[in-house]
């Protein structure tokens, strides 16, 4: 028999958890249901499935070159994630592994830079990018985010748990520094990489302001820009918008489910 007090306690915990999971799942449910309804039904707050899904999809396809847009977003997110992880993890590793009397100062400066809002950097950055002839290119979207201070910080923290004995052993075995990084460090930090992948992919996929400024032609549009344009109508078609929103949500969702186990481990800071 479980004592009554404990039972009440457990009931309370479950009630709170149920409310929290409802709050997290309902927006997804609403999104999926809305995509099957007409705009008028969405506004009316209808919460059951409708028969308008095909029409909404056709409407979206008629307005937007979905394949192109999706490919643009996916290309930017994949390339951006791979390069950001590579560059930023190297930096994080370097900051932790190599001693220097200025390293803490440089690192503190980096963290300080985090506090400058992007809006303040936007115009000078745009001038820089266009004088390099990179305006309206995907490279211009990627370049400013490749060395991510947050990810450098994250990797440096994770590297603290990386045993220096492993590195010393590798050195004795005759590995060069880059080989240690590639063959010893990277495999043992798998869960850190997985967690960082989800974070960077999501940031890159959802990136809005900078692509908006830099990308000028319809062929270069990303999914966030397209959704923004769809919502700008005087009478927005919410059914169509929600179909586009599902498309925009799926990749991050799938990636999260695939890497979920490692993500949790990575957040806890484990070394394999």
């Amino acid at each position: 028999m479980i004592p009554a007090g404990k039972l009440a306690n457990r009931a309370l915990v479950h009630a709170i958890l149920a409310a929290a999971s409802f709050a997290s799942i309902f927006p997804f449910y609403w999104m999926v249901v809305g995509a099957t309804n007409t705009s008028a039904d969405v506004i009316r707050g209808k919460t059951s499935f409708g028969a308008n899904l095909i029409a909404n999809i056709e409407n979206l396809l008629a307005q937007v070159d979905v394949g192109r847009v999706f490919l643009n977003s996916a290309g930017l997110a994949v390339v951006g994630t791979v390069l950001t992880l590579l560059i930023s993890s190297m930096a994080g590793y370097g900051f932790e592994m190599f001693r220097s009397h200025v390293r803490e100062k440089v690192f503190a400066l980096l963290l300080l830079l985090l506090s400058i809002p992007f809006a303040a950097l936007m115009v000078p950055l745009f001038v820089m990018v266009s004088s390099a002839g990179l305006a309206n290119t995907f490279i211009a979207v990627l370049l400013p985010s490749l060395a991510s201070i947050f990810i450098i910080f994250y990797f440096r923290q994770a590297t603290k748990a990386f045993p220096s004995e492993l590195r010393d052993a590798a050195r004795i075995d005759g590995l060069k520094e880059w080989q240690i990084f590639l063959y010893v460090y990277m495999p043992s930090m798998r869960s850190t990489y997985a967690a960082a992948t989800i974070i960077v992919f999501m940031l890159s996929w959802n990136n809005f302001l900078w692509p908006l400024i830099v990308l000028q032609t319809p062929e270069h549009k990303t999914i966030t820009l397209v959704i923004s344009a769809l919502t700008s109508a005087y009478t927005p078609d919410f059914g169509v918008i929600l179909v586009a929103t599902i498309l925009a949500t799926l990749p991050t969702l799938i990636l999260f489910f695939v890497l979920q186990r490692q993500f949790v481990a990575g957040m806890l800071g484990s070394v394999k």
């Binding site: 115009v123 745009f126 001038v127 266009s130 305006a135 309206n136 400024i213």
Partner: peptide
Amino acid sequence: TQLLAKVTDG
């Protein structure tokens, strides 16, 4: 942004 940056190409 673009008028402020005086970059009108785009």
